[in-house]
Design a protein around this nucleic acid. Structure first.
Lengths: 194, 194
DNA sequence: TTGACATTAGATCGAGCGTTCGATAATGTC
DNA sequence: GACATTATCGAACGCTCGATCTAATGTCAA
């Protein structure tokens, strides 16, 4: 006997799809309710408002997304190897939660004060993780750049850009691309004698 | 005697600010007309519709933005030096036309068929310029990566991310950051023996 | 069967949206 | 000075938005 997916999860799933495809402002609550075949009031029953829906998506995603990165950053490994794993994990997250990440990369301006704070904190925590790793690498002389913050942003730029151009139905597999991107980043931070 | 700025340009300027700040859907034509102290009908007199306004912004920007990159790519220089100049030019464009680029990075889904085509073509032309340069570098053995397309996307990721995190009022100057980013990218593409 | 409660549907609201219209004011042309 | 052209305006249109209200339905213990 299969447990039917709870309505709340169904709503979150469909809303995520629509928000990712048409944007937050571009998606009406009628769009969502129609796609699900339920009434508008039902949406309001589960999530108090349209933005409540957005916040729920943010919350649901951010937990798993950040915890995964955090876990990797706490692994006892060679710093370079750990950094590599961090990138791989992050790229996998981008693949699995691409739609959610897209929403908050594109529509962050439509969040309330509360949502905006939550969103910013997530971004800050991700940056902090990378900064810590880069600091460790720098201490071992594996990074020559002076400004670790710029370096971290560059790394995040490459990773975040991935979910803007990569198409799963294209010629390249996720693993191939991961390898290429990882190599690019590792070369980039190594700051060799150019 | 100072020539007053033509109303058309004023509208374009204010609209660019608002679209960049609040998104296309998030900005009403009333917002724009209020910010300018003119009537809504006046907007429609100059640009036939809200999307006409967006298209005008796209057109005005894309010309100067792309032509600059094109010009650099046609310079007769050492390939590595030309690539470096390309990045510098691109970053300068991001600094000067950050708002415009933001609009079409965030709101491309709201363009009509015509606008979407124009926007895609711009992206494609930018990518083509980088692919050509990377190809030249690869021919001289300066790039070891197998997949130039992924490499080009990585480069664009770093550059485009710049206009998401860089704040002119922060501690870093544009030139400092440009130097850091250029070094990162050049190291990244060199694909050394890691 | 009844009553309490959760869940649903559908009508409805005021606000805001993009857009249109007809009229007025300013400017240029002969 | 008459006339065409351009620039500007206020008022309104039809529509969609997020949100709410009311009433009906389903569920299940007592």
């Amino acid at each position: 006997m299969v447990q039917p997916t709870p309505m709340k999860d169904q709503i979150l799933s469909v809303a995520t799809d629509l928000f990712a495809a048409k944007g937050f402002k571009g998606t009406s609550i009628r769009d969502i309710s129609n796609a699900l075949g339920i009434s508008i009031s039902n949406l309001y029953h589960y999530f108090g408002s349209k933005e409540g829906l957005l916040l729920a998506i943010l919350q649901r995603t951010s937990e798993t997304l950040l915890d995964d990165l955090q876990r990797v950053s706490e692994m006892e490994l060679e710093p370079l190897e750990r950094f590599k794993r961090l990138i791989e994990t992050h790229l996998r997250q981008c693949r699995d939660f691409g739609k959610e990440t897209r929403i908050f990369m594109l529509d962050k301006e439509h969040l309330s004060r509360e949502g905006d704070r939550a969103n910013r904190q997530i971004q800050r925590r991700v940056l902090a993780i990378y900064l810590k790793e880069l600091g460790t690498l720098a201490n071992r002389g594996l990074v020559t750049s002076r400004n670790l913050k710029v370096l971290a942003f560059n790394v995040l730029g490459v990773i975040n850009w991935y979910l803007r151009w990569y198409r799963p139905d294209g010629p390249l597999s996720h693993d191939e691309v991961t390898e290429e991107i990882t190599a690019f980043i590792l070369n980039g931070i190594r700051g060799a004698d150019i």
